[in-house]
Write a protein that binds this DNA or RNA. Structure first.
Lengths: 334, 334
DNA sequence: TTGTAGGCGTTATCAG
DNA sequence: CTGATAACGCCTACAA
């Protein structure tokens, strides 16, 4: 299967068959005119002797790497939310199907040097940027560089190819359901407002209230909650206000809230309703199953990769793709 | 910073400076004799005009890609255990420092085709294989291919470069502590026995008993538990046996156990002690904080990458590297 | 339909 | 110390 020895080159094949490299090249690539029998002969020899074109050489010749890059903020790996692994799975699947490989690039909000390096070094034909920010340095950099790229997350810049679940609508629907259950006072505990995703969710929250003509209380919205401590503090404030429903921005935040509420002997759902986003295993150990919006992140990755490949090939590509979501009603909002 | 236009080539630089490509190459690579002033002149021009060598060309010339591959079973991404992201972070850090990039390759137990492709296509200079199996097809394949590689997980094959935490010792220590607390009957709920890691942990469990001269009960060891249902079933059996201490093989399994125990109103630690491996956020929402063995997975990734780079460069590399662990005693085993 | 020759951007060998 | 020149393996006008 895999030979240890020196690999066969196109030249070897050509010599062995008594034809020119050009002919072999044409047989392999399918481009250019070539006699059907010669083609067959070459192809047969190739599969027989397991010849594989050298990607580096091919890349050098036509300025392509057959790699796509996946860029993400390193801190996305620090949180145990499984967003990145799932997306990778989807991306990798589509990429592999098209003979592409995936190169990972980890960056830091203040240090894009690795991204710059990958691009300058010509290591990828295009990139997928995980998560978008309000003031998105990486996206701006990519745009300036002229390399094809798509973001996994929405952006205000209409020039940018972007793919994401419809978080506005997802949160709008969730909020509506809760409001219609008669829960008039809903608190939100959200993450970093520099992440577009959190802004979108809040937008949906507002929309639902507007749709139903129900006022919301700005002081029940806690933003930029990024630690167990802040989450606990938010929970305290919420309870002091006698509110009995909380939407957690993601499963991690919700798990923090859950822990705090249990410590305080708050019964769920009797004393407090709780809803979350993702529906990951982070909440499996919870005593009460938690209502959540589910996203098919693998599908999201697949879609993003397809769009990127289109772009790389110079084909027309949708600039904004919104994917769906699913609401899973559980005990926590009974 | 990043130019949209055509990139500078070594030839451009050479012509502009009135020297030969060879000279420029020498200045850049530091190899070969070259006059100090010429060197300075070239280097200055280069940084001034932001010249970057083309990695593809370099690769073609010396048969190197400056990529390392990271291979993992796709199902490692299905579980929300954060092992992979953490390891990636460590690997990527060391790789980037040495101007290497990381290519992801997802495989399936029965389908190594993507791995074969990456290798045959010459896309990487070496690979890191995540997790080892008892009958390790991927490892065997890599070995046969002759490409440098290291496994993140131990292997019985002494020829293979392997890096891992000392799981035997970790579980031995954990078990000893529990035994010395007077918990004579300890149950184990473990995952797939085809994973070396689970075998090693069990080995440590046995050792601890032998060390202390305490017999263990084989019927309290549940292996190949890979779902919430099986975990719940194991918990049931364990409770029927009146055992009051369980070691869960990882945080996911432990979180399943935890949920089941809470449903059954079992008080922790009063009625049941519980210990786990990893100490990830999967257990943050647990009411009772859980005793666990902690591993520095980022460090593990860094170490593996270092070893691999040594191997790639043909330097001497340690064949077996065992990293440490940490025991975090918590409320669940009070 | 097929082949020749030159180029992609570096590195390495071997003279000068 | 420096510079031609030939690889590296593939692609693509342009010829034949």
């Amino acid at each position: 299967m895999i030979q240890e020895g020196k690999k066969l080159t196109m030249d070897d094949v050509a010599k062995e068959l008594g034809v020119s490299k050009t002919t072999v090249s044409r047989a392999v690539s399918g481009k250019g005119r070539i006699g059907e029998q010669t083609r067959q002969r070459v192809l047969e020899y190739i599969s027989q002797h397991n010849y594989k074109p050298n990607v580096m050489a091919k890349g050098l010749a036509n300025q392509r790497t057959y790699n796509i890059g996946m860029v993400l903020q390193a801190d996305l790996l620090s949180s145990d939310l499984p967003f990145f692994p799932k997306a990778l799975k989807g991306i990798s699947e589509v990429a592999a199907r098209e003979e592409y490989d995936v190169i990972m690039t980890l960056i830091d909000t203040n240090d894009l040097s690795r991204l710059v390096r990958v691009i300058e070094n010509n290591k990828v034909d295009g990139m997928i940027l995980m998560r978008t920010l309000q003031d998105d340095k990486p996206a701006q950099m990519l745009k300036k560089s002229g390399i094809p790229f798509v973001t996994l997350g929405l952006s205000d810049d209409p020039d940018i190819c972007q793919v994401d679940n419809d978080h506005v609508d997802a949160c709008r629907e969730l909020t509506s359901i809760l409001l219609l259950k008669g829960l008039k006072k809903i608190a939100v505990v959200s993450g970093d407002m520099n992440h577009v995703i959190n802004r979108k969710r809040l937008e949906g929250f507002y929309q639902a209230h507007k749709d139903l003509g129900i006022p919301y209380d700005e002081s029940l919205i806690f933003t930029d909650v990024d630690s167990q401590m802040f989450a606990a503090r938010a929970a305290d404030r919420i309870r002091m206000r006698n509110v009995n429903c909380i939407i957690g921005a993601d499963d991690l935040i919700t798990s923090y809230l859950l822990k705090k509420l249990e410590e305080e002997q708050v019964r769920i759902p009797e004393d407090m309703r709780l809803a979350s986003f993702h529906d990951s295993q982070l909440l499996t150990s919870a005593k009460t199953s938690v209502t959540a919006i589910k996203f098919n992140t693998e599908e999201l990755g697949r879609e993003a990769c397809k769009v990127l490949l289109h772009q790389i090939r110079g084909e027309e590509a949708a600039h904004v793709t919104k994917l769906s979501y699913e609401v899973a009603m559980r005990e926590s909002t009974k």
